[in-house]
Design a protein around this nucleic acid. Structure first.
Lengths: 198, 198
DNA sequence: ACACAAACGGACCAGTGGGTCCGGTTATGC
DNA sequence: GCATAACCGGACCCACTGGTCCGTTTGTGT
């Protein structure tokens, strides 16, 4: 592979990533190519079609999340809290990834590379929950799927163009906590009046 | 207003409703007009633009939900459970409305008619929760906004084309219940192994 | 029955999307 | 430094979208 080719591929990935974060996955391939400073032709030579590009970027993001979670699993000693530490961290950097997660349809996950990532993610969730359960902090019946649901709910809550307020995020994290926590460990939600407009 | 005009308007609303349910709010106006058996011109004479059509249908759906909730509020005596009865009912007919709810952006809610509906919805949520709290079943800090978040999370969980399995729905309802319920009232989630594929 | 406004519907428009193609350019092995 | 294949980029293509326009049809009041 010629090195200019590789450089262009990286530029494309970086540009796509940036555009997806900012404008959602709907941005046109043209805009991405422009942002990367290459022609459309180059884009399609590197990625068979737009979905392939999305999948590639999503794959990168997922592996970051996996790294983060595994690191936590290895170095965080607090069994009762790891899950929530993880979720908080996830959400902190989630604002950037919301667009991708929203685009993460089943269709996209047919790519074998992403399938592996997904399985790995579920295993990670399982491992985190297991520690919480061992400590008696997480309901024994809670599953990795539950956790995925809750996180997805947060990501999907609003369209990408409408960034989530800090308030919304905190509130949502509290809800997730309440849903997963064992009664003995449950803390009251932060009380706050409900603002009427969405 | 000529009566054929009115008939066409109703046909359009019905067709739009059906198409939105089945294919999501992305269907083109052309398809909607075709399904209604009228020309595009007729569509745009009744609704200034596509958003107006979506808003009109969404308004109808919302008012159904409001009716359902208010009825429950009036006739269901079980304070501790009304909220969950409502949610279960909502979700039962939610499969049909998911597309609309997913399309319910802030942009859309600028229509004053929808703004009123939204406020009414929040008041309904508030009233339902209030009864639960009175019975000690709902966490006192839970707000209408929380409830909206949880419901939205369920609706947004997957794209419209991918119908939610009964399993997913039940599971999600359990999570919502866990998140809103007071420890004293909490029941264990239905335990079920986590299927790996999304 | 008739006249006429109201309503119709589909041809049409401009804009935008993903994806292709090919004449020119550039890195690389010799 | 040269030949050559890999690689480039943007002009181009077609499908499709929301929205407009206008010649034709149709309901309705008299």
């Amino acid at each position: 592979m010629r090195k200019d080719a590789q450089r262009n591929r990286e530029r494309l990935l970086a540009a796509a990533d940036a555009m997806f974060r900012e404008h959602g996955v709907e941005v046109s391939v043209g805009e991405i190519a422009d942002a990367a400073g290459v022609g459309r032709g180059t884009l399609f030579r590197n990625f068979a079609n737009k979905d392939a590009l999305v999948a590639a970027v999503l794959g990168e993001r997922l592996s970051e999340v996996l790294d983060f979670g595994r690191d936590l699993l290895e170095h965080d000693a607090d069994d009762a809290e790891v899950t929530f530490t993880f979720l908080a961290g996830l959400v902190a950097r989630q604002e950037e990834n919301r667009a991708l997660l929203q685009a993460a349809t089943d269709e996209l996950f047919k790519a074998p590379e992403l399938q592996r990532a997904h399985i790995a993610l579920m295993e990670l969730f399982g491992a985190l929950l297991a520690r919480g359960k061992r400590a008696g902090a997480i309901r024994p019946e809670a599953t990795a799927t539950d956790m995925l649901m809750l996180v997805k709910g947060l990501c999907m809550f609003a369209p990408v163009e409408q960034p989530l307020s800090q308030d919304t995020i905190i509130r949502h994290l509290d809800l997730i906590r309440a849903a997963l926590t064992t009664p003995a460990y449950s803390k009251p939600l932060r009380g706050r009046p409900a603002p009427l407009p969405v």
